[in-house]
Amino acid sequence: MQSLTKLSPILIIKKQVKWKAKLYISALSSLVILQIIFTLLFFNHGNASEGYGRGNVNVQFFIYSLDVYVMVAMLWAFITGLLFSTKAYRRDDLAIISSQASSAIATILVVILYSMIAVMIIAASYYIQLIGLFLRQKDAFIIDQLIISPSILLVCFGSICLFGAVGLLVGYCFQGPIIVKLATILFFIVSLFVLIVYPEFINLQSFILLSNLKISICCFLLAILCFGLTIWIAHQSEVSAL
């Protein structure tokens, strides 16, 4: 009996991450394209405006903040997470050394990595927008805050990560064992019911009022929970489509 190759799971996952990050890169290019589209959409009037009447002066502020970019990135992360959990992507993993769990872990790491890059893309989009704005509206251009503070970057990263994690989890739930699938459907029905009957059940008001750091920690904790569930489901699930 020849000796079996003993590859440590960590090494395998590392290699999987390396290749996946390269192969799924089109997800990031679509984010860039989305950001450019939304930059153009909101270029004229910013993503928020404030108006003040002062005597016969009507002052209007067009505010260019990160909100739209981050929201787009969050939705993107959710859809990307869903996409990564589809059969088309997961089947490719079977051609190389992997188990369902290792492939899930690698995908999760890729989602985290992409979330980081997404934050950078957000910043890049933002500054590109500002330079366009500066060149066009030189005289009425006000810089309130130019440098994105680290705490805000953390919130961006955390929320994008969270949405990616939720997307991934939902995707894996629907591809997992039948019990998980049923539980997920039940969960969705119940939460939909709750939302319709008690719309005030979900109150993000107090959540928003937390400090940036606390918000990002909440996001991270939830994301970790989702990631953990994803790995657990992946470890239970079979390769479908036989």
Partner: peptide, 27 residues
Amino acid sequence: QALPEHRVQYYRAKASFMLLDFHRYHE
């Protein structure tokens, strides 16, 4: 006499979340 209403527009760059900031200031 006051002159007819005059409109001024400013373009402000705020590298943060309006959603969060607005609610916080409000509170």
